[in-house]
């Protein structure tokens, strides 16, 4: 490795680290009890305290999400790589994205004046 390589590696590592708080700010402080499913047709708010299945109509087929034990995951999808299915459980800072279908799942950002935000 040349010195330039080392600098470049450090630069990419720094970019990844700097992007970390940036993506946190973008997501907002997430509420842990409501997920937001967004598809081409619109947005669905999903309570995480009841087990259920949700079908989101994507741009090239259906994406199926399942809530179980307070956590949401993508179960099946019509996309080629199934990155969404392999993403596992929805966690803060780690959205589930099915880009080929134009579908995303995030934890809902907590509103500013929320009781939980004050009591935290």
């Amino acid at each position: 490795m040349t010195r330039g390589d080392t600098v470049l590696v450090c630069l990419v590592a720094a970019m990844a680290l700097f992007a970390l708080p940036l993506s946190g700010a973008l997501a907002g402080a997430p509420a842990q009890d409501v997920a937001v499913l967004q598809g081409p047709a619109g947005v669905t708010r999903v309570p995480l305290d009841q087990d259920a299945s949700y079908v989101v109509e994507g741009s090239s087929g259906e994406v199926v999400f399942k809530v179980r034990d307070g956590a949401l995951r993508c179960v099946t999808s019509t996309c080629p790589d199934h990155v969404c299915v392999r993403s596992g459980l929805l966690r803060p800072g780690a959205p589930i994205v099915c880009a080929p279908n134009g579908v995303t799942a995030t934890l809902e950002a907590r509103a500013e004046g929320d009781l939980d935000a004050i009591s935290r």
């Binding site: 990844a16 967004q38 959205p95």
Partner: peptide, 13 residues
Amino acid sequence: FVGSAVPLLMLPA
């Protein structure tokens, strides 16, 4: 494509 900044949340990882 998705129409939101959500995918960019994965940029650090």
